[in-house]
């Protein structure tokens, strides 16, 4: 308790609520997570490198990284348009559409996975028209990208919406009255204001895509070296009872995710300061 020195407060329950919070956090989150790091710490460096840098694992990193990057980029572009339309324009059905943006958060990932496969497979809803044209989506890298775009869709929209709502109309009016045309106003006044939120949304969408499993495994076809994502590789190693190999890859992924989380926090801190000035 000496470390967590509290200010004097008349409200009771500090010890009880903090104690429970720390105990629950420790038991459910921190102790199990540390198990992954400790298990890997017991490996020799050569074993670790062999586990996390074999050609098959490298191919999975590449696919996970570039498919997530592409999905987050597409979501940043269309998310900006969707957020703009939902905040600025009026049209029938807008409230329903606004609520529906959260569907990828609410729909279980396995359901999304089989639904996307039913659409893009060879005899699927769109696949039966696309495959004769030579466009293969299911069981290719593009399929992975489509699934990751679906699950990352709400992030950019939801981080941009509140910022767009709070933008002062005076900003645009001032720009216009000083002689800027609409494009100049958007490029030089609006986009710099929106940029921190856009970047946050992009990073959140990217981070979610890196770890995604359920929606991808059905549509990707899971071919080693080609359409195998990193989380699937962890499952494969577990099924072969290669716990050390699985954990070593997990530690690489955890390090990347925590790095991203830190980056997102820094962006938000920076944007708050930027806003105050």
């Amino acid at each position: 308790m000496s470390l967590l020195r509290k200010q004097h407060s008349v409200l009771p329950g500090f010890g009880l609520s903090l104690g429970f919070t720390l105990a629950y956090l420790g038991l459910i989150v921190l102790v199990p997570l540390s198990a992954a790091f400790l298990k890997t710490a017991g490996m020799s460096w050569a074993d670790f490198v062999a586990a996390v840098a074999s050609p098959r694992v490298m191919a999975a990193y590449r696919l996970s990284f570039f498919a997530s990057l592409a999905a987050a980029s597409v979501n940043a572009f269309f998310g900006l348009i969707v957020a703009w339309v939902l905040v600025r324009y009026a049209f029938p059905g807008k409230r329903i559409l606004d609520a529906l943006v959260d569907l990828p958060f609410a729909l279980p990932t396995a359901v999304a996975g089989i639904a996307l496969t039913a659409i893009y497979a060879k005899n699927g809803w769109l696949g039966q028209w696309l495959e004769p044209q030579g466009v293969k989506i299911a069981f290719t890298e593009i399929g992975v990208f489509v699934a990751l775009t679906f699950i990352g869709l709400p992030f950019v929209v939801r981080t941009l919406q509140p910022v767009l709502e709070e933008l002062q109309p005076e900003l645009e009016e001032a720009a216009a009255s000083l002689g800027a045309n609409r494009w100049q106003t958007i490029a030089r006044v609006l986009l710099p204001e929106l940029f921190p939120a856009l970047l946050t949304g992009f990073a959140l969408s990217f981070a979610r895509a890196l770890g995604e499993y359920g929606s991808v495994v059905f549509i990707s076809g899971n071919m080693p070296m080609r359409t195998e994502i990193v989380p699937l590789l962890i499952i494969t190693k577990l099924e072969q009872y290669d716990y050390r190999g699985a954990t070593a890859i997990a530690v690489v992924m955890l390090t990347a995710s925590f790095g991203l989380l830190l980056l997102i926090n820094l962006i938000q801190k920076w944007s708050r300061r930027h806003h105050r000035v």
Partner: peptide
Amino acid sequence: LLTTLIDLPFAVSPVISGLIYVLV
């Protein structure tokens, strides 16, 4: 720090969330 740690599970891949309990 406590507030950040509470958000930690959102940054963990679902597969890893299962794996860590297997390790324990």
